[in-house]
């Protein structure tokens, strides 16, 4: 098993200009991942696949993650003049971190039987620049899974041979796994409408659907 630091060092020497960052993982699972920049992602992963010491020939799991815009509050000590005297005052700085979409690849080696090496690639934002290089030319197993990410998260994979919706129907417009997805306002009758369901029920139904009368027949029998 090669450590992520070693992989990073090897990949950065093999692919000049590649920026790789190790993302620590706080859970007891201890599976750190490698964040690779978009431009060099495919070359770096190709190196990981073909490098004789790694031979990550098996791309097991491909998935998308949606990270919304976040606000991080950091306390900064600022020197200001208060009543003609210079004082250090703690100020809360609110910083908006732009959100992004992320594709996560779990790579294993069937030849050397090690793994997982987790590769992450991030888009620039969540709205327009949602393009990532496709890894399907390297791993066929990514074909359907990248289509699924495109369908559910809206990441466009450049170089994918057949990027269409896969689970949702073709006319569907939104991407339902995004964290800010609002489901359409269609309502199914429930016999116990309460709280917010009741409010929606009132909008959609004026009368409860009448039964077909058959249960009164069975009750008499």
């Amino acid at each position: 098993m090669v450590s992520p630091e070693q992989i990073k060092a090897r990949a950065e020497t093999a692919v000049p200009g590649a920026k790789i960052e190790i993302i620590a993982n706080g859970s007891p699972a201890n599976q750190p991942s490698l964040l690779i920049d978009r431009e060099h992602a495919r070359t770096v992963v190709q190196f990981l696949r073909d490098d004789p010491a790694l031979q990550l020939d098996f791309c097991s799991n491909v998935t998308g993650v949606d990270w919304l815009d976040r606000t991080a509050t950091t306390k900064v000590k600022v020197k200001t003049l208060v009543d003609g005297e210079e004082k250090e005052i703690e100020q809360a700085q609110v910083e908006t971190l732009p959100g992004y979409l992320e594709a996560v690849y779990h790579l294993y080696s069937m030849a050397l039987k090690h793994g997982p090496v987790i590769v992450r690639i991030r888009t620039a934002d969540r709205a327009n620049a949602v393009h990532l290089p496709s890894l399907t030319p390297l791993y066929r197993s990514a074909e359907f899974q990248e289509r699924e990410i495109y369908d559910l998260y809206g990441i466009r994979f450049d170089g994918h041979p057949d990027l269409r919706r896969i689970l949702m129907w073709d006319e569907f417009v939104d991407h339902p796994m995004r964290k800010d997805y609002v489901p359409p306002d269609d309502f199914e009758y429930e016999p116990t409408p309460h709280d917010e369901v009741l409010a929606r029920a009132k909008e959609h139904y004026t009368v409860r659907p009448s039964s077909d009368g058959a249960e009164t027949l069975t009750a008499q029998a």
């Binding site: 009758y189 016999p191 116990t192 409860r208 659907p209 039964s211 077909d212 058959a214 249960e215 069975t218």
Partner: peptide, 10 residues
């Protein structure tokens, strides 16, 4: 089994 699928199954 019931003859009606909403209130009868409540």
């Amino acid at each position: 089994s019931r003859r009606e699928r909403f209130d009868a199954l409540l």
